[in-house]
Nucleic acid binder design. Structure first.
Length: 563
RNA sequence: CGGGGUGUGGCUCAGGUGGUAGAGUGCUUGCUUCGGGAGCAAGAGGCCGCGAGUUCGAGUCUCGCCACUCCGACCA
């Protein structure tokens, strides 16, 4: 392709509404174009990268035995109503009507469609297992689209679904997908971590996320460098510490006027936050529960939702807090609650002695409170968020570190949630009906592109890994009015084109500096400059990921490009 | 959903106290240049987000709306 004819416009200035490097560079390099918040077009150069990513995924999925098909993006409501997700999705789903007033949506994910397709076409255990996938646009009306294609409302996703006879079959399908995912992300040159993820209200026996390490990632990762355990921070377990050996002291009510927060109490009492236990009241599907964690800890709401099996969880309203405790907000505690409610206590608190809690009386706290003597929790469980420095819950030796990550893939053991809801059954050897056991596996295609750029760029622009670069080589003749230069450049160009190499020739009548800047910005891996030494048949070769420049014979440059 | 910010040529932005718009960059043309975004000169390009209102007169003031964006909350 000749750059003079390429539909591309690069920008020198950083676009005002882009915050992170990948978003800025995708706009500056002319890969994408914003149509509306969270909605982007892919321009020719960007679309080439997009297709490379797609093809790597396609190749590895096919090798893993998955079969590609394509579902409509415009979907009738029936299956979503049957699975319960028509309501559960809420405003995040784009909804519309046809002229007859029937409900439709733009598919936010396709469990229902795949389950129905398999239900209607497979009857026997002999036809299982099967894994199907598609690469297709998804629609989610995100509350807050962000960072260009990183979190957008229309995005491209590869979604796969496996159907097995039993759990053992699911495990096998799951591992096959896990292995395929590793190959996919390896081929794209990504530095990533596989973490345990929350399986959420969907239940199921397991879920893992593929996280690309990046400071701009929206997810937190906890990992142990000793044993390799890694988990999403919302999932990461914490250890129960050894019980305190301290002698129990007598409980004491203390006046703490206006000290509603831990900070205020700490400065008032001149002690440290880890001597406190805070009691937070939640409303879980209408039930008020008390949740206790150490004063310097945060409650992990994901763990709490799972523990309570709640559909909706939110902080209790102030009125509810006052009704339950008989005191103003800020003085809640587990001792002598006015209204008996469930008390859930973190495992760390269960090991403490002589701690400070609210007294359920405005302006008062209790000190030297002890479990068993002063109150008894209904449940003791791991409900706090893990933090940097925690003991590893797996090896119990290493300490946990924290990092940020971009979730580019998610694999999930679904079990029978959808097969039950939609009647996806098969007949086993005995002729008995069983629900199929499902798994689902997603990769964000457009998000992966952005993640690659986050990990592969410098001040001058993108540094595409070879496997997904839009073109492998760019030839830069420094002067377009110099016959010697142009003849040699054109000669290399035609040889490479014939050899099937994806090559650009920057034949624009621009100064060399402009061409170098653009080549760096769009990130072409190999650059061949044809200039001063063209008379001797020599050219300069430079790779985008290195600062070395080598002058070589033109034939050598061809060889280096793989001819 | 709560709180903040911003809407002015393609892009980045400037436009005290009201008087119908500027710069840089990009684009076109010419000349001089030509190895890391050249210089000079001449051009083209703007319902100043939309709608009301105040005013003789609104990019500027008032009200409403919309869009974009940031922080938080939320998120299979």
């Amino acid at each position: 392709m000749r750059v003079s004819g390429l539909f591309l416009s690069t920008q020198r200035e950083v676009p005002a509404d882009a915050e992170i490097p990948s978003h800025q560079l995708m706009l500056r390099a002319g890969l994408i174009r914003k149509e509306a918040s969270g909605i982007y077009s892919f321009m020719p150069l960007g679309f080439r990268v997009y297709r490379k990513v797609e093809n790597i995924i396609r190749e590895e999925m096919d090798k893993a035995g998955a079969q590609e098909l394509i579902m409509p993006a415009l979907l009738p409501a029936e299956a979503y109503k049957a699975s319960g997700r028509w309501d559960r999705f809420g405003p995040e789903m784009f909804r519309l009507h046809d002229r007859g007033g029937r409900d439709f949506c733009l598919g936010p994910t396709h469990e229902e469609s795949f389950t129905e397709a398999v239900r209607d076409n497979i009857r026997s255990y002999k036809q299982l297992p099967v894994t199907l996938y598609q690469i297709q646009h998804k629609y989610r009306d995100e509350k807050r689209p962000r960072f260009g294609v990183m979190r957008s409302r229309e995005f491209v996703m590869k979604d796969a679904y496996s159907f097995d006879c039993d759990e053992a079959g699911l495990d096998k399908s799951y591992i096959t997908m896990y292995d395929a995912y590793r190959k996919i992300f390896d081929r794209m040159g990504l530095d990533y971590t596989v973490v345990d993820a929350d399986s959420g209200a969907m239940g199921g026996s397991g879920s893992q996320e593929f996280m690309v390490k990046s400071d701009v990632g929206e997810d937190g990762i906890c990992y142990c460098s000793k044993c390799g355990y890694a988990a999403n921070e919302e999932k990461a377990a914490t250890c129960a510490p050894a019980p305190s050996e301290e002698e129990m002291k007598d409980i004491e009510k203390i006046l703490t006027p206006d000290a509603k927060t831990i900070e205020e109490l700490v400065s008032f009492l001149g002690t440290t936050p880890d001597n406190f236990v805070k009691t937070i009241l939640y409303n879980a599907d209408g039930e008020i529960v008390a949740v206790m964690v150490r004063g310097d800890r945060d409650i992990n709401e994901t763990k709490l939702v799972n523990l309570l099996a709640a559909n909706e969880l939110e902080l209790a309203a102030f009125d509810d807090v006052e009704a339950v405790t008989g005191a103003k907000v800020g003085f809640a505690g587990p001792v002598d609650l006015k209204k008996k409610i469930r008390v859930i206590c973190d495992i760390e608190v269960a090991a403490m002695r002589n701690f400070i809690v609210g007294a359920n009386e405005t302006d008062y706290h209790f000190k030297n409170v002890n479990i068993g003597r002063d109150f008894t929790p209904d449940t003791v469980a791991d409900i706090r968020s893990a933090v940097e420095g925690d003991l590893c819950p797996k090896c119990k030796e290493g300490t946990m570190s924290m990092a940020r990550g971009i979730e580019v893939g998610h694999i999930f053991k679904l079990g029978t949630k959808y097969s039950k809801a939609l009647g996806c059954i098969y007949l086993d050897k005995e002729g008995k009906e069983n629900n199929m056991i499902m798994g689902c596996y997603g990769i964000g295609v457009s998000r992966t592109m952005a993640a690659v750029i986050e990990q592969h760029h410098d001040d001058d622009g993108i540094i595409w890994p070879e496997g997904i670069a839009p073109y492998q080589v760019i030839i830069i003749p420094t002067k377009t009015n110099d016959e010697t230069i142009m003849n040699l450049a054109e000669d290399i160009y035609s040889k490479m084109t014939e050899a099937g190499i994806e090559v650009l020739i920057d034949d624009r009548n621009e100064r060399p500096g402009v061409k170098f800047k653009d080549a760096d910005l769009i990130g072409i891996p190999m650059r061949i400059t044809v200039g001063r030494a063209a008379g001797e048949g020599r050219v300069e070769v430079k790779f985008r990921n290195s600062s070395d420049v080598n002058e070589v014979e033109a034939s050598e440059a061809l060889r280096m490009a793989g001819i």
